[in-house]
């Protein structure tokens, strides 16, 4: 019969190194862009046309996000890959709905955080970035936030990796901290690309800070620090509720959950036999 083997070969180390390099480059692109924007020129956003800053923010963050996707997406197992569209639809449907209300939250990361908890930081980062890119098919204004979304996914995965989803009260705390970092990173995009926020509710908060005489960048960063941590605390809590409602077999099909003992009550004792 056919001479091909029915079993999988061990993964080649060269490919793994290349992927790791892409991951690092992507993270560097995002970090570098952020550092450049913050260090060089927050003063004049409200001054001139400011399109160079917008271009740098757009291209730097987008290139970073795409590098991350290129690094991670080919390595994901099928069980994670098919869950990404589900996560994206959750992000988009909830995000679109909440964005249309007058609540200063977004709730557009539930799917991303769900994947991160089940499949790890890398998968979370790729899902976050992909989510923004594919959502921009319906709403192009979310595209520049791809890097921020990737960061949320990565942080959520790390939180899961280190057991913050094992206790119920840790999840909102982890979400709160993630929100602080995510908000700080997304603020330059809102400031330099959009010159403000995309919602009326968040806009009102920015207005309040501007009325107190803050620069636009400072006002948007403060607004992000008000909205994002609460938002992510809610998201992390909802995801914790979701994953604990999943049947055991569905949770344990993810090696990340088994290996790192992500959820309470699903020890690896049986898995290792």
């Amino acid at each position: 019969m056919s001479s091909t083997s029915l079993t999988l070969p061990a993964p080649a180390p060269a490919a793994a190194r290349k992927r790791r390099l892409l991951e690092i480059l992507g993270a560097l692109a995002i970090a570098g862009t952020y550092a450049y924007l913050v260090l060089n020129q927050p003063s004049d956003i409200a001054g001139g046309p400011g399109s160079a800053a917008a271009l740098i923010a757009l291209s730097g963050f987008l290139v970073g996000a795409i590098l991350l996707i290129m690094a991670v997406l080919p390595t994901l197992p099928a069980s994670t890959l098919v869950l990404i569209p589900v996560a994206l639809v959750l992000n988009i449907v909830l995000g679109q709905f909440v964005g249309s209300t007058l609540v200063p939250f977004y709730l557009d990361a539930i799917g991303t955080v769900l994947i991160a908890v089940l499949a790890g930081p890398a998968a979370g980062a790729a899902t976050g970035a992909l989510s923004s890119i594919i959502w921009s098919f319906f709403n192009p204004t979310v595209l520049p936030f791809a890097a921020g979304a990737a960061l949320i996914g990565a942080l959520a995965g790390l939180a899961a990796r280190y057991g913050l989803f094992r206790r119920f009260y840790f999840a909102p705390i982890a979400g709160f901290l993630t929100g602080i970092i995510g908000g700080v990173v997304s603020a330059p995009v809102a400031a330099f690309v959009f010159g403000g926020t995309s919602g009326v509710a968040t806009g009102a908060i920015v207005s309040a800070f501007r009325a107190m005489g803050d620069t636009l960048f400072a006002a948007i960063t403060k607004q992000a620090l008000l909205s994002d941590p609460m938002d992510k605390a809610i998201v992390f809590t909802l995801v914790a509720l979701l994953v604990y409602a999943l049947p055991r077999r569905a949770r344990l099909q993810f090696p990340f959950v088994r290996r790192h003992n992500v959820l309470a009550g699903t020890g690896r004792d049986d898995a290792t036999n």
Partner: peptide, 19 residues
């Protein structure tokens, strides 16, 4: 055993991974 290839499983992590 499929098409002449025989795979043995012991119920451990070192078992062959099916393609």
């Amino acid at each position: 055993e499929v098409a002449g290839q025989i795979l043995h499983f012991e119920g451990t992590d070192d078992d062959p991974a099916i393609n």
